[in-house]
Amino acid sequence: TASGVSMTADGLRSALSGIVPEYMVPHHIEFYETMPVSANGKIDRKTIIRDLNGKSCIVREEDLPQGELEIRIADIWKKILKIENISRNDDFFTAGGDSLSATRFVQTLQNENITSEPLPLRTLFSTPTIASISGYIENNNLWVAGCSEGNSFEEGTL
């Protein structure tokens, strides 16, 4: 490289594994000669996300969403973030989410009767992976297990 420093994806993953927890080490790493920038000179995250989503990222079997709740959350993320492959350890915001899409995600959980009450938006910021948000929902008894849109009961009816 121009700076005289070279790095491989495996080398970077190895260095990161000594610093951050395993679930935070990215499976796919893309190197750019120069970062794409928007018209106002800021890093163009949308271009980077589009480039990364265009690559075929393979999710390892052990990283696939596990259980009904994680699978349903993953399906919502795929729709909102417009991505095909997702790991249970992917970070919502690293995968392309922002505050607007986070709001849509929280609303969708409620609208599709996945949670029994509205999830505070700040929860997604503190538990940004499918595994962690699923754990939060289960640990706080918010999951409406086995219920899907259209088969839940309105209060006072049977």
Rank of each mutant, 00 (worst) to 15 (best):
T1K: 13
A2H: 04
A2N: 10
S3A: 03
G4V: 00
V5F: 08
V5D: 10
V5S: 11
S6K: 10
A9H: 01
A9W: 02
D10S: 13
S14K: 14
L16W: 01
G18I: 09
P21R: 04
P21Y: 02
E22Y: 06
E22L: 13
E22M: 12
M24L: 09
P26F: 02
P26Q: 06
H28R: 11
E30D: 07
E30N: 07
Y32N: 04
T34I: 12
P36E: 08
S38H: 06
A39S: 13
A39T: 04
N40I: 00
G41F: 03
D44V: 01
D44I: 00
R45D: 02
T47A: 15
R50F: 01
D51S: 09
N53T: 05
G54I: 05
K55T: 04
K55L: 08
K55A: 04
S56A: 12
R60D: 14
E62F: 13
E68A: 12
E68K: 10
L69F: 04
I71F: 09
A74I: 08
A74W: 10
D75I: 01
W77C: 01
K78D: 02
I80V: 14
L81Y: 08
E84V: 08
E84M: 02
N85D: 10
S87H: 07
S87M: 07
R88E: 04
D91S: 11
F92T: 04
F93G: 04
T94L: 14
A95Q: 08
G97V: 00
L100V: 12
S101R: 10
S101L: 11
T103P: 09
T103S: 14
T103Q: 11
V106D: 03
T108A: 14
Q110R: 14
E112P: 04
N113M: 14
T115V: 13
L119K: 11
L121Y: 08
S126F: 10
T129L: 02
T129K: 03
I130M: 03
S132Y: 03
Y136N: 02
I137T: 05
N140K: 06
L142Q: 03
L142F: 00
W143K: 08
W143I: 06
G146A: 11
S148C: 13
G150S: 01
S152T: 14
G156F: 01
L158Q: 15
L158F: 15
